[in-house]
Design a binder for these strands. Structure first.
Lengths: 197, 197
DNA sequence: ACCTGAACACCGTTCAAGT
DNA sequence: ACCTGAACACCGTTCAAGT
């Protein structure tokens, strides 16, 4: 098999596909190399180690998720759209969730940060407020995706306790709805109170 | 070396210590067995696989974190104390963070859930509201711990962008302060508005 | 310069064999 | 009933050797 344009991106694309198929935990350097008919060691010319490959692939996931909504939305809708896009992408590729705390973030993640801050800043929030809101949204999205992944087990265990069937409704609810409304409400109040923060 | 009381808990205790020393990612069945002078396969009488050992050890972490505050605190202080206890424990043993989305939750996690719901319910929240607040708090704690773990890299990358030095202040800030105040504010408003939710 | 295969030092887990 | 050691099928990564 010819390998003329066998560059960095080729490895990332293969890693992406393999992870979609089987999850991050099943990916190995040998498998990626095998798909491209290359020795495993050839990859070390492009990535210093496996984590570097994973970080680059995560950046590709963020890029392809393409979470940016229409710019004509007002800021609350804009935030909710971005948060939901991230949450949906993470739930679809939930095998990434365990790694979010340990992988480096790449250029795509930074692009999202910048867009978010610019949008909120032009809506009347200060830079500090915008950044804080961004971090809060990211925390909620990660936490929601994390709970979404592990919730079935929790459900199983909780049903043997005294907590009533109210739980059932909540568990089938979209996890993002657990925390995001609280945040949106507070942000609206913050904006109304003006610049005194 | 004698091994008379070599029960389930002995393996958990050793795993706990090894993880405190070197992190979850370095733990192996062989190492735990080695410390106890037992063959690696002896553990499979107590745990069906490595994940079961990790889940049991995580439950031990939650148990030892002992997040329950004085019961005489009012509910906002009580929540903040529990959230901070969880967050502190997770940051101290941050190698657990990547696994929070994939491990089963054990009996200790359920105990925390129950205490939380009981406390908020007796403060005037409905069971549904209490559970939703609990999930929101857990999401924030996990998300904050996750960001706290990866933030140094993010900081490094962000400094090459146009986002100004306001970021510096926020990054050195306690991550829990990013989202928890928003939640507390909304919960207080919810309680004032009474039972119409 | 680039790629390779063998090798090192590990893994989790299976399984037949011991007592 | 319990434990063992050898073995299987993998890992990430190093490194000397090829072209």
């Amino acid at each position: 098999m010819a390998k003329p344009g066998l560059n960095r991106q080729a490895y990332i694309d293969v890693a992406f596909d393999l992870i979609v198929e089987s999850g991050v935990e099943k990916l190995s350097m040998r498998k990626v190399a095998g798909v491209l008919n290359v020795s495993a060691m050839a990859m070390y010319k492009h990535f210093p180690n496996k984590d570097a490959l994973l970080a680059a692939t995560l950046d590709e996931v963020i890029k392809r998720a393409d979470v940016y909504p229409d710019d004509e939305l007002d800021w609350p809708q804009w935030i909710e759209h971005v948060a939901r896009g991230m949450y949906t992408a993470l739930c679809e590729q939930s095998s990434w969730v365990p790694l979010l705390g340990s992988l480096q973030l790449g250029s795509q993640a930074i692009t999202v940060t910048q867009s978010f801050v610019i949008k909120l800043n032009s809506a009347g929030f200060s830079i500090e407020q915008s950044l804080q809101a961004y971090f809060a949204v990211i925390q909620l999205v990660i936490g929601a995706a994390c709970l979404n992944t592990s919730i079935k087990h929790h459900q199983h265990n909780l049903q043997e306790t005294q907590i009533p069937e109210a739980l059932e409704k909540l568990i089938s609810t979209d996890q993002l709805e657990m925390g995001l409304p609280f945040l949106m409400q507070s942000l609206k109040a913050q904006l109304k109170n003006g610049a005194q923060n």
